[in-house]
């Protein structure tokens, strides 16, 4: 990051624009959430998708500009790429419940009538 006054002025205007964009996206995501989707699964998935896209855009703005990731050193970038890979692995964890039945209509939790019994003396 160079220290010349001109550069810093430019940075300040970038920060202001990012701020305005973040406010805009915040309002947008709230408004979108008020749009009545049909309660079918496809529409809920769509709503989740739109919500996450907007959140990701905001997250990108904060990370790239406020946290200066758009102009960071390789060591940090590589550490974060590694982190993001494992983060994605973590987020895929819920898929592990029963891959064989993905996309089929399966009651994952076994419904109300299936009770789990544990034989254990509670102290």
């Amino acid at each position: 990051m160079s220290d010349s006054d001109h550069d810093i002025k430019k940075h300040i205007s970038v920060y202001r624009n990012v701020f305005l964009a973040l406010l805009f996206f915040t309002v947008l995501t709230v408004l979108v959430s008020y749009v009545e989707f049909d309660a079918t699964e496809r529409y809920i998935a769509g709503a989740v998708f739109i919500g996450l896209i907007i959140a990701s855009a905001k997250g990108y703005l904060v990370a790239a500009h406020f946290m200066h990731l758009n102009n960071e050193k390789p060591m940090i970038n590589w550490s974060l790429i590694l982190t993001v890979i494992f983060f994605i692995v973590l987020l895929f964890m819920p898929l592990l419940w029963d891959m064989n039945n993905m996309g089929k209509d399966v009651d994952y939790w076994g419904g109300e009538d299936q009770k789990l019994e544990i034989y254990h003396d509670v102290n």
């Binding site: 060591m75 494992f86 819920p94």
Partner: peptide, 30 residues
């Protein structure tokens, strides 16, 4: 590396925070 120590340090800390909240988001999805 073009870095001072604390900068790398804080990014590693944030990396661990990403994994902390990542696990919670994972739990949330499930």
């Amino acid at each position: 590396t073009g870095l001072y120590n604390a900068k790398l340090g804080v990014w590693l800390f944030l990396a661990s925070e990403v994994m902390l909240f990542g696990a919670l988001f994972s739990a949330y999805v499930l």
